[in-house]
């Protein structure tokens, strides 16, 4: 049974200045239910890849299919309806700093035309989403009053509040301490296992990928339990200077002999 692809890149290239390719003929497909971990050095094009997937950047070559529709040349006003079904966590959270946390989380509910929620249900939805990221107490705060980790969680709440089938997380753990980073990754795993979402997760840290690939959320006691790689359906991808240099499972990644790819892998025996 072939699952449908929620996102497909076909030889996608992106340039900001003529001749400098930030993405260079990148091709891959993300079937429903898969989680894809994207790694690569700073500046290798991870953020650009996610933005291109959303149609926030335009490809100069190749084609991008998002949720079954070719968005490569779609005009901006036709993209909103498709974007409404994709959640995105920006690298620096990108919360609206003139709005409270609650207003931030309510923003997609209020502004996406395809989402019609009665006004009185809105508050419940917002609270539910903030409870999911354990940030209900900060509901009336402004983003500037939150810590980096709390901002990240508020941004996750905003990304998942509409219940999108596809989520794009840009560096959810960058710049956080190990404990908070673990909490955030646990949230991502929880979101995947509770709502069966498909996700792309950009990260620098191998342990994030490891966690996603080998653990499942246990709804009974709220902990992460070990699971087989098959059950979590996780694929790794490594970018180097805009090119896709590796795509495969964790086992394949650990076995990969390429030096650049190897730098992202913390092998179990070395970690010990």
């Amino acid at each position: 049974m072939a699952a449908t692809n929620l996102l497909e890149f076909d030889k996608v290239s992106v340039e900001f200045e003529a001749g400098v390719r930030v993405l260079n003929e990148v091709s891959f497909a993300v079937p429903e239910g898969q989680t894809r971990i994207i790694m690569g050095a700073a500046g290798s094009g991870k953020t650009v890849l996610l933005k291109t997937a959303m149609g926030l950047n335009r490809a100069c070559g190749g084609s991008v299919r998002l949720l079954g529709e070719d968005i490569t040349h779609k005009p901006e006003n036709q993209l909103f309806e498709i974007r409404a079904r994709v959640g995105m966590l920006f690298q620096d959270s990108a919360l609206f700093d003139s709005m409270t946390v609650a207003q931030n989380v309510a923003y997609p509910l209020l502004n996406q035309k395809s989402i019609q929620i009665p006004r009185d249900k809105m508050e419940d939805k917002v609270r539910e989403s903030l409870r999911f990221v354990e940030l209900e107490q900060a509901i009336t705060k402004y983003p500037s009053e939150l810590s980096g980790g709390m901002r990240r969680r508020a941004a996750i709440a905003r990304a998942v509040v509409t219940g999108p089938p596809l989520l794009l997380y840009d560096s959810p753990t960058a710049g956080l301490d190990p404990i908070t980073a673990h909490t955030i990754m646990a949230l991502i795993i929880k979101e995947r296992d509770m709502d069966n979402t498909t996700a792309l997760v950009v990260t620098h840290r191998y342990q994030d990928g490891n966690l996603v690939a080998n653990f499942r959320y246990n709804p009974d006691n709220g902990t992460l339990d070990p699971a087989s790689e098959k059950a979590t359906n996780t694929v790794f991808m490594v970018l180097r200077e805009g090119r896709l240099v590796f795509e495969g499972t964790q086992t394949e990644l650990e076995a990969c002999s390429d030096e650049y790819v190897g730098k992202f892998v913390k092998k179990p025996e070395m970690a010990a």
């Binding site: 933005k51 959303m54 926030l56 901006e76 909103f80 974007r83 409404a84 994709v86 995105m88 920006f90 690298q91 620096d92 990108a94 919360l95 609206f96 700093d97 923003y107 997609p108 502004n111 996406q112 035309k113 905003r158």
Partner: peptide
């Protein structure tokens, strides 16, 4: 601070 992109992403 990417808020403009976020706005576009959020419809």
């Amino acid at each position: 601070t990417e808020q403009i992109d976020a706005m576009r992403a959020l419809g």
